[in-house]
Design a protein around this nucleic acid. Structure first.
Lengths: 190, 190
DNA sequence: AAGGTGGTAGACCGATCGGTTTTCCAGCTT
DNA sequence: AAGCTGGAAAACCGATCGGTCTACCACCTT
């Protein structure tokens, strides 16, 4: 094994892919992607069957970190369910304040590739499913009247806010936490 | 003037542009666009300076119809402000039920062209501004505690719902009207 | 030291990109 | 009927698309 073996080549490629696809969109060319990763097209096509697979793998790779950021401390010290939900929106607002923020990468992928069958769309839907499930679980724990409804409402707020903030149409200073709070209260969640 | 004079050529082009850009995204090529419009590339480039300008003009062209659909009956018989707001979400839910629904075209344009300076992004932001203003005006009429906040919250719901329904991640049967109602109540709007 | 392995660089493929230009024709004017 | 106008068709431009392939090089094994 050389210093740039298969694994590290793959890592460099996926890291660069996540960064450039997020910054410039899924229409970035394979040439530019490989250049920014320091990986030859040859190597890329030995690791992946197509550009779409690279995109899907790059989205999948950052998913655990994404989830950990929104839902830290998987169990004990995580705090009461209401706090855990509001933490998601606090993180969203904090991230959206950075100038490089371009919205949730999973929602962006779903919108840009209009094809729901695209491998990256499948990964993106999985990310959305995970967050929906997180909200629903917390809603159940908190005794919400209709946990599924509340979770879906919170997803509307999350995705609406990330799309609008990413497109620089809105600045989220406290907006999503205020909105989420109103919905939690309306759902009778403690 | 022939039967296909300058005006009707322009109309055909913009109609086809609105349709194909909405269905397939802004990455559709000029070749395919002109073919579907029955307009030569020559004519297109005599009417517009670039593909981006065609996109912007096509979005601008359908804006009055878009606004009229969401806010019918500009003045008298339009009903109380609460109803007028809920009508927006009822229309959104109805539109999103159609299989060809791909989300709000203005939000999609903002997400796909990540450049806020793109001429089409300017038009799209204008459409979003208009809806925000509509919500705020109705919120004021209805005596909401914080009309601006309520309007921004409703925009989150609207854009989140259109993005999710357009990406086929969500089905909006009553979801947005229920959410909007909760927010209207929380804002103390009559 | 010889050979194998696994990577980069980049030429190359046909197709398509946005955009320009030429050619031709239909229909109007006079 | 001759001439003008404006649009359609399509060739053409250089660049880039996704993807393949050759050439070469650095390192590891033996």
């Amino acid at each position: 094994m050389t210093t740039t073996d298969k694994a590290s080549t793959r890592d460099r490629l996926l890291d660069a892919a996540a960064e450039i696809f997020y910054r410039e969109g899924v229409s970035v060319g394979v040439e530019a992607l490989c250049r920014s990763a320091g990986v030859s097209k040859r190597s890329m096509y030995q690791l992946f069957a197509s550009k779409g697979e690279v995109l899907a793998a790059s989205l999948e790779r950052v998913l655990p970190a994404y989830e950990a950021r929104l839902a830290p401390g998987s169990q004990e010290e995580a705090g009461p369910p209401r706090e855990r939900i509001l933490h998601v929106f606090a993180r969203l607002e904090k991230a959206s304040a950075e100038p490089a923020y371009r919205g949730c990468p999973y929602l962006a992928a779903l919108v840009e590739l209009k094809d729901p069958g695209h491998p990256a769309s499948v990964v993106a839907r999985g990310a959305k499913e995970w967050l929906l499930g997180f909200f629903r679980a917390r809603a159940e724990e908190g005794g919400a009247r209709d946990p599924e409804l509340l979770a879906r409402q919170l997803m509307l707020v999350f995705d609406g806010a990330s799309a609008r903030a990413g497109a620089k149409v809105e600045t989220l200073d406290g907006l999503t936490t205020a909105t989420a709070t109103a919905l939690l209260d309306a759902a009778g969640m403690e």
